[in-house]
């Protein structure tokens, strides 16, 4: 199944019945899919007049306790930033999918990973975080939809899936059984038809600074909880690796091939793949590079996640970066050569 469409089917399996979106390459297959499928399952698909309107429709639907999805690609996600900040401030769970494309500005329609900062450092205003998940296959893309909804509901916070044009457009086998198990939380805080309960109000407005600070502290404590409990990462051959390549999403698969090539020539390399980009898997990364002498971050951008790698390792060992941007993807050969360069440096042969 095509990645974009797998997201739609996974959303249905996860109990989501509301989607508000807007066409933008390379994710339009998702709204198209749900426009066909949702009516079959009693879902509501609505194409909004803009991504700004779409995210605010998501805000409204989320307030009723519904599982609600929206998706876009880079420029559209920029338009949604204010709404995402409101959802975080009002603690309303929702799932936002960003099928990234080259930027900045109108950029291009080829895949990229240059929205990492926007997603993990907060593209909107205020101290808030979005739970950011980075799948590397169509199956994981589908699984992350279930995980994303569960985490969003569990912590009453927006969650985001950071995919890229490749993932959205490529086709791979996918099984949705695993998603059905995800539990749907009963939401007493929801607005809508109330039977004998107190009225519910959702706002992010706190004119009294003491109240707003308390609210910020409450959110910060939530984010600490998420960081402690929800980090996810995957490792490949890092146990004895002297060089650890850090990459997420599809790029990690390219790096896997490069690592295997390096291994075949006696260079002990491994791949560390963060699955949660926020919260960044710091503990796991520190453990993975404990025996390593060099780290290489590889991204389809000019270098964004590399900063979190450096922050996490706090100068313990050198962190190199290799990236392609604008829609270009790193080749296995190029990554392999970067690994080799570092390996030589480590041996002091250069």
């Amino acid at each position: 199944m095509k990645g974009n469409e797998a997201i739609g089917e996974a959303a249905i399996a996860a109990g989501c019945r509301y989607f508000f979106g807007y066409p933008i390459t390379p994710q339009s297959e998702l709204p198209e899919y749900l426009a066909r499928r949702f009516p079959e399952v009693g879902g509501v698909y609505l194409q909004a007049e803009s991504e700004v309107a779409a995210i605010n429709m998501v805000y409204g639907a989320a307030a009723t306790g519904a599982r609600v999805l929206t998706s876009s690609s880079s420029p559209g996600i920029s338009l949604k930033q204010e709404g995402i900040s409101y959802a975080a401030g009002s603690e309303l769970p929702c799932l936002i999918v960003n099928i990234m494309r080259g930027g900045p500005g109108l950029g291009g329609i080829q895949p990229a990973q240059s929205d990492y900062f926007q997603a993990t450092k907060g593209g909107g205003h205020g101290d808030y975080k979005v739970i950011v998940l980075a799948p590397a296959s169509v199956q994981e893309l589908a699984d992350m939809v279930g995980t994303g909804f569960d985490l969003a509901d569990k912590y009453r916070n927006p969650a985001m899936i950071l995919g890229d044009g490749f993932l959205g457009q490529m086709m791979e086998p996918v099984d949705f059984a695993g998603i059905k198990k995800s539990k749907i939380v009963e939401k007493t805080w929801a607005v809508g038809c109330k039977k004998g309960r107190e009225r519910n109000v959702h706002t992010s407005l706190y004119l009294d600074p003491e109240e707003l600070e308390k609210h910020n502290i409450k959110l910060a404590q939530k984010y600490e909880l998420i960081a402690e409990n929800e980090t996810m990462a995957q490792e490949y051959l890092t146990e004895d690796a002297e060089i650890v390549v850090v990459a997420y999403g599809l790029v990690a698969r390219i790096c896997k091939a490069a690592v295997e090539k390096a291994r075949s020539e006696g260079i002990r390399a491994g791949v560390f793949r963060p699955i949660t980009l926020w919260p960044f898997p710091q503990k796991e990364l520190r453990k993975a590079v404990a025996a390593a002498r060099g780290v290489l971050a590889v991204e389809m951008s000019m270098g964004q996640m590399v900063e979190d790698v450096r922050l996490c390792l706090e100068g313990r060992l050198p962190v190199r970066f290799y990236g392609r941007a604008g829609g270009m993807a790193p080749t296995t050969q190029a990554v392999y050569e970067e690994i080799k360069k570092i390996s030589l440096e480590c041996k002091g042969v250069e």
Binding site: V52, V58, A61
Partner: peptide, 25 residues
């Protein structure tokens, strides 16, 4: 009543979201 506070200018969109997700409201 129940209430939600919408971003500046976005109330009709937020209201659309509420109504579509809770048609009896």
């Amino acid at each position: 009543t129940d209430a939600i506070q919408a971003a500046h200018g976005r109330a009709p969109a937020a209201a659309t979201g509420v109504k579509r997700a809770s048609p009896d409201s």
